[in-house]
Design a protein around this nucleic acid. Structure first.
Lengths: 328, 328
DNA sequence: TTGTATGCGTTATCAG
DNA sequence: CTGATAACGCATACAA
């Protein structure tokens, strides 16, 4: 007995043909058209022999893999891992499984995955793009691969779900303004990435930026920013994402006169942190749900015309900020 | 011209045969055996037609996918996402790509992936098992699939890399003991999971547990534990993982008399948190490196006998704990 | 109701 | 040096 039996083995064992076995194992309507007797015999043999269909072979034939890929820029970021969780659950309900890939903010790696994944067999792709435009995307990806762009708008692509960065940034700035902020320090991720660039632009419009630091959207960059900004005493330090802010905060040694921190997305346990924080929080569940809502019609070949889903952010402040505000 | 040309198309275009084209495109020694003239012609045509090999077909034939899967119990946990990052980088260097899957602490989902992934085509699997024993694993996984168990020991499986939970827990308890802890509250993840169970056992040996709460290793469980333990005033609250602790901490309303928190793995920004924390930190880089060191020989068919890699934890305390200690 | 034959895109064997 | 041709495991149009 082969360790991993094929249709042929079962056919031989049951004195039938591959097609019969295939039909039985396909289930549903096709299986109904096989005599109950043979069907039972095949089913039993299959189970008994421990048959497991080779999905590679099946996909080669049917051109469907029932797999979609989610390529994110940084899986370490809770923002993305929570999205991944939700997307996975939703896709699972639809009969698809998810493979998660991580470009790690590295354009070359993104490129590699963009080339690799389609050839490896995926039915659809959800992408958090690093730097690409529509055309750059169009010629590295198969022409009609169902695609959803997540978290960043790409002009000309309808299947997109992202947050209104203008609203998100202005809401954050509003709260900081009300708190009296005028002169701020700006810590931002790569200018090449839309979200970081756009956020930085708006902040620059709203405040006088007396210090700025740019780098990869990581803890380290935030830490470096701290030493650079140290002593400038801005009214607030605004970071274009949570990792930058966490790095900055981590570097803080003394909390005698803590700066106000403005940031996008979640800072874990911010309620208890002894420095005033205001976050502009994206709607993670809606982002995830939006993804699959944009993807499913494409997977099902429904020619729905898709319009971008644009979500709103919500500003949240921590206790230290609130009490400061109350005191004022 | 087909949008996605195959070897046949190229062969036709260059007046050669599929085998020739295949050989040329294979590169290396086989390609050397083709006349430079034809080789150049084929190469040019392939590039010009935008040929992309169908990896499904190739894998079906070669029985190699150059893909390994990492199935974790909770991708939202930075502990795992950081491991994923490192494993991905290491595998990439070896010419393999990584697909990341998430069982979400759900045994059924784990089961599904365990069944699905091998049939979908992976050369190896790195698994953070939920509840399984060696035999349970053996009959849902193909007999000779290269496998590495991560973060939890499974008796009888050599390719394992995990942390010495005894050492990790005792180190944590030592620090807490020195701080004067005698009566503690215990917040633990599922007893069915080795790490949680083992940690809880050791803690129970070392201290008088005056309150305990068990549940999924999530924020929510931690929060629930808070209301349950509230008012018991233990010397310390020990959580068997970081998410539990973060949930617990998040629920804390007043920090008048904060409890000491003992926890496994990282609490982000713990330095600034105004409550004393002591962490037993696993060695993430070594865990990741260990994985690929256990996996590669198997992928290369080298019959090395593999012994479990057992790592040590390191206790880290935050400022609030240190100053408390200095005062005492 | 069931079997035969063909093809999915590659690689590999065997001739020539 | 190169070309037929047979697998890989499965699904399916076409026969019977």
């Amino acid at each position: 007995m082969p360790p991993t039996p094929t249709l042929i083995d079962i056919a031989r064992e049951t004195n039938t043909s591959v097609s019969t076995v295939s039909r039985v194992l396909a289930g549903g309507a096709v299986a109904e058209r096989i005599s109950p007797e043979t069907r039972g015999r095949v089913l039993k043999a299959a189970k008994q022999m421990g048959y497991r269909p080779n999905l590679l072979a099946r996909s080669l034939r049917t051109r469907k893999t029932h797999t979609v890929a989610l390529l994110v820029s940084d899986i370490s970021n809770p923002f993305f891992s929570r999205i991944a969780n939700l997307v996975e659950q939703a896709l699972h309900r639809e009969g698809y499984s998810l493979v998660l890939c991580n470009s790690g903010e590295d354009p070359e790696l993104e490129d590699e995955y963009l080339n690799l994944l389609p050839r490896k067999g995926i039915d659809g792709l959800i992408l958090v793009p690093l730097v690409r435009g529509k055309k750059s995307l169009a010629d590295t990806l198969p022409k009609n691969l169902p695609l959803v762009i997540l978290d960043r708008p790409i002009p000309g692509i309808g299947a997109t779900v992202f947050t209104d960065q203008e609203q998100a940034a202005h809401a954050l700035c509003d709260t900081l303004s009300r708190d009296g902020a005028k002169r701020v320090a700006l810590v931002s991720g790569p200018h090449s990435i839309y979200t970081h660039r756009r956020r930085a632009e708006i902040i620059s419009e709203r405040f006088e930026v007396i210090a700025r630091h740019e780098g990869p959207a990581s803890f380290d960059t935030g830490r470096q920013a701290f030493v650079k900004i140290l002593g400038q005493s801005p009214d607030a330090v605004i970071c274009t994402n949570n990792f930058l802010a966490m790095g900055f905060i981590e570097a803080i040694e003394s909390i005698d006169r803590p700066p106000v921190i403005g940031v996008f997305d979640e800072i874990p346990l911010m309620h208890l942190l002894p420095l005033p924080i205001v976050c502009s929080m994206q709607d993670i569940p809606m982002l995830a749900e939006g993804c699959v809502r944009q993807l499913m019609p494409q997977l099902n070949g429904e020619p729905k015309k898709l319009d971008p889903i644009v979500l709103q952010s919500r500003v949240v402040t921590n206790r230290a900020f609130q009490s400061r505000h109350n005191a004022a």
